[in-house]
Structure formats: structure tokens, C-alpha cells
């Protein structure tokens, strides 16, 4: 699913994504599913490329159910962004989602998480030695 380049600003607005410095803040929708996760992924990657975004805060605090397929897309988004030079921190997984991800045997070691946006910004700042 590839989004037309010209629609990127519209997508950013529709998805509630905003930019602060070279940091993208993404609010995941409550009813996230593989399709919406892929649309967000595509939008993030094209922003990383177009604006040399270095930091991504992916706010997952409203998600109460996350299956392995959708989590796989979120995980993949962070890995892809990393290959393009941007670091992702997931903000505030709910306890039920965290328990399920462990029970689902998901790869949780290779993602970074924080409990609040402020903490996420701190983590991301600490890692950016080149800036």
C-alpha cells in the first residue's frame, strides 16, 4: 500500500502526526489494525526520507488490543526507520498489551519503550550524540 507523495501532508493531518524539531510524534489509533499500521508506516518512512527525521515517538497508549500481526508491523516500522537513521521509542504500552506481547513471544528486546512522552524525549535525546 503506497500513498501518493502529494498526499503526505494530508495523511499527516488525518493521522494526527506532528513534527517537533526533527522529531515525529505519532498517536496510534485505538482500533489499530494491520492496514492502518501499514498506512502509518508508509507515512513515517516517507517523512523520515523527506525531512531527515531523526527521532520518532510512537504513542501507543490508547491501544488496548494488539495482535501479533499488527505488532509485527509496528516492530518493522521501527527497524525500517532505524535503517534510515531515525530512532523510535514506543510510548506507554498498556499492561494488557504488554502481557499479551510477552505471551505472544513477540520480539520485544529490539524496541525501545518509555512510560511517558517526556521520558521518551529524554531517552531519544540521550542517544543522539551527533546532534
Amino acid at each position: 500500500m503506497r500513498l501518493p507523495e502529494s498526499n503526505n501532508q494530508e495523511n499527516l493531518n488525518a493521522l494526527g502526526i506532528y513534527e517537533m524539531g526533527n522529531c515525529l510524534i505519532i498517536p496510534a489509533p485505538q482500533d489499530i489494525n494491520p492496514n492502518s499500521a501499514l498506512i502509518i508506516q508508509q507515512t513515517i518512512l516517507s517523512e523520515v526520507e523527506r525531512k531527515s527525521i531523526k527521532k520518532i515517538l510512537y504513542d501507543v497508549s490508547v491501544i488496548s488490543v494488539l495482535d501479533s500481526k499488527t505488532y509485527g508491523i509496528l516492530w518493522g516500522t521501527a527497524q525500517m526507520a532505524a535503517m534510515m537513521g531515525a530512532r523510535t521509542v514506543f510510548i506507554s504500552f498498556q499492561p494488557g498489551v504488554a502481557s499479551a506481547l510477552v505471551d505472544l513471544d513477540s520480539d520485544i528486546d529490539s524496541i525501545q519503550t518509555a512510560s511517558t512522552l517526556e521520558e521518551g524525549l529524554e531517552i531519544i535525546k540521550m542517544g543522539s550524540v551527533n546532534e
Binding site: D67, Q94, G96
Partner: peptide, 17 residues
């Protein structure tokens, strides 16, 4: 409780997928 609700819903989501 809400944690168990999420876990059960996740199991259903896996089965349905």
C-alpha cells in the same frame, strides 16, 4: 480485569486472523 480482557481479546484476534 482489564489486563485479562486484553489478553483474551488478543487470543481471539490471533484465532480470527
Amino acid at each position: 480485569d482489564s489486563v485479562q480482557q486484553s489478553l483474551i481479546a488478543t487470543a481471539v484476534s490471533e484465532l480470527s486472523t
